[in-house]
Write a protein that binds this DNA or RNA. Structure first.
Length: 504
RNA sequence: UCCUUGAUAGCUCAGCUGGUUAGAGCGAGUGACUGUUAAUCACUAGGUCCCUGGUUCGAGCCCAGGUCAGGGAGCCA
């Protein structure tokens, strides 16, 4: 018996096992919000309906105490799930004292230290449920489309995209690296099965402290034989839209719990704009407008708005603090105003961040140098102008990986594609059409200063029946972060591993 | 690696120009209340002001170095 199915048991006696998510008491009554992993329900312990011992126990339950109850399911519109349980019997498995995560705001460092407990909170629960739906939808899409799932090795002897950000380990006395991509192995499997995808962990030793980097993350890498860059973009689009549709269909409750505005998810079911690198650069530099919006202008407008909002908030804080200074205010009112001031100050800090960041972004966009890769801020700048993901393709070949094919009509471009998520999220997919010519690959390997002997097996793929093929890599956590509109990627995975964070 | 902000009670924070005994809310504990939703109300306990050194009659506050964390850049999914 799980709380999520409670509606089927109206008027019936049930048994529930779970944890105390909240408790309030009143004379003769104890209200327990019970959490069982599937949902949340309020249980009422009434002194007149329980033994003295049971009622005393109910009153002593600390947050996250584990209990078993029996009770009657009653319809009550006021409650979250529309039902409550009138307790007829209560058994305590453990009284919990001093549960560290209190019913109030906490700082991120504290919460990350308590991640193993934080996962029990409603918001984190909802995010992990959505992550699960996304994972399932990904498998479902590829399986339906006839892709074979493969597991790429995690220990690798060669670096596929440079060596600076690899985790080195000891493999029976030889150096080995934790995989930063399964792609080269995926290409080999695609030559055996036609269409494959990997779904596995990936490790990058980047000393990054930004909202979109993890040291360990999960990547999905499809690879398709007989596929060019345009067909690849078709697949990226239908794949992502499949996942988004699934989340919209199956996760309404969770999306509401985390207050996700769904309008952008819905417009993302329309075709994704496809821009060449040249077009994207023109937009970023403000030389070309999109839907009547100019990148530089919109940033300047936003900065102006931020400044105005900042002044408004400062005024409100001053006003409330002045009120608080006058004696005679009721306790409840004091609390309310103090909480309000605290949240306003928090928002003020966010605005200050924006005031520091936006001018940097404007400068970076204005001074963007043609031929460079897009930086994080450039991605933010361009994606803010669209209400759906965009795909940018045909990149200057110097900035992209060695295995990408050149555009035959314009060889200074490599046929790579990045998918940039809207709402400022930026790159969540990187991929492209692969180089098919052995000689050109050898030249590229030398150019990138990579050890040729480590790639001989990969070059075999071009020696024995080379065919046009393409694929891409999707960062699962970045997708979860965007779909849930999280501020930081660290909340998208149960136990994030990042620079400075190995525990819990 | 660089830029930037910060570290004060279990948690979130305030602490004025360096000045006597360190402040609030939440949480915890005790009590009151039969319909609460982060319940409310009263009372109680709770401090190595991150570390090391310096300036000063006097440092939570100033200076130097370090540690840790937040945000951003580079790099990337």
């Amino acid at each position: 018996m799980y709380i999520k199915d409670i509606a089927q048991f109206e008027g019936k006696e049930i048994e529930l096992k779970g944890w105390v998510a909240n408790r309030r008491d009143s004379k003769g009554l104890v209200f327990i919000n019970l959490r069982d992993g599937s949902g949340l329900v309020q249980c009422i312990a009434d002194q007149s309906k329980l033994t003295e011992d049971e009622f005393n126990c109910a009153g002593k339950l600390g947050l996250e105490s584990s209990i078993e109850i029996n009770g009657l399911v009653v319809k009550d519109e006021r409650q979250i799930g529309g039902f409550e349980v009138q307790v007829s019997a209560l058994k305590v498995l453990q009284f919990t004292e001093d549960y560290p995560i209190a019913k109030k705001e906490h700082g991120i460092d504290f919460l990350m230290d308590k991640r193993h407990l934080w996962l029990r909170s409603q918001r984190q629960w909802a995010i992990m449920k959505i992550r699960n739906t996304i994972t399932f939808a990904i498998h479902e899409f590829f399986q339906k489309e006839g892709f074979i799932q493969m597991d790429a090795p995690i220990f690798t002897g060669n670096a596929c995209e440079g060596t600076s950000n690899l985790f080195e380990t000891d493999f029976y006395g030889d150096p080995a690296y934790l995989s930063q991509s399964g792609q080269l192995y995926g290409e080999a499997m695609a030559m055996a099965f036609g269409k494959i995808y990997t779904f596995g962990p990936t490790f990058r030793a980047e000393k990054s402290k930004t909202r979109r980097h993890l040291s360990e993350f999960w990547m999905i890498e499809p690879e398709i034989a007989f596929c060019d860059i345009h067909q690849n973009m078709d697949i990226i689009e239908s794949f992502l839209q499949y996942v988004i549709k699934k989340v919209l269909a199956d996760c309404q409750h969770e999306l509401n719990l985390i207050d996700r505005d769904q309008s952008v998810l819905k417009t993302s079911l329309e075709p994704f704009p496809r821009l060449t690198y040249d077009e994207a650069v023109a937009i970023i530099k403000g030389e070309k407008d999109v839907n009547g919006q100019n990148s530089i202008k919109s940033l300047e407008d936003e900065l102006e708005q931020v400044n105005q909002q900042y002044q408004k908030m400062e005024a409100e804080i001053a006003e409330r603090e002045a009120k608080l200074a006058i004696p005679g205010m009721k306790k409840g009112e004091i609390n309310f105003n103090q909480n309000k001031v605290a949240t306003l100050k928090q928002e003020l800090k966010d605005l200050e961040e924006a005031q520091r960041n936006i001018p940097q972004w404007i400068a970076s966009a204005k001074n963007f140098e043609y031929g460079n890769d897009l930086g994080g801020s450039d991605e933010t700048v361009i994606t803010r102008l669209f209400d759906k993901p965009i795909m940018v393709y045909d990149w200057p070949h110097e900035v992209k990986a060695f295995y990408l094919k050149r555009n035959p009509e314009s060889p200074r471009f490599a046929r790579g594609v990045d998918l940039l998520a809207p709402e400022g999220y930026g790159e969540i997919v990187g991929g492209g059409e692969r180089e098919t010519d052995e000689q050109k690959l050898r030249e590229k390997i030398i150019e990138h200063d990579l050890p040729m002997e480590a790639f001989e097996w990969y070059l075999d793929l071009r020696k024995y029946g080379t065919v046009p093929h393409a694929g891409f890599g999707l960062g699962l956590e970045r997708l979860v972060t965007w779909l849930c509109k999280l501020k930081h990627v660290r909340e998208s995975i149960p136990f994030p591993r990042m620079y400075g964070r190995l525990l819990p």
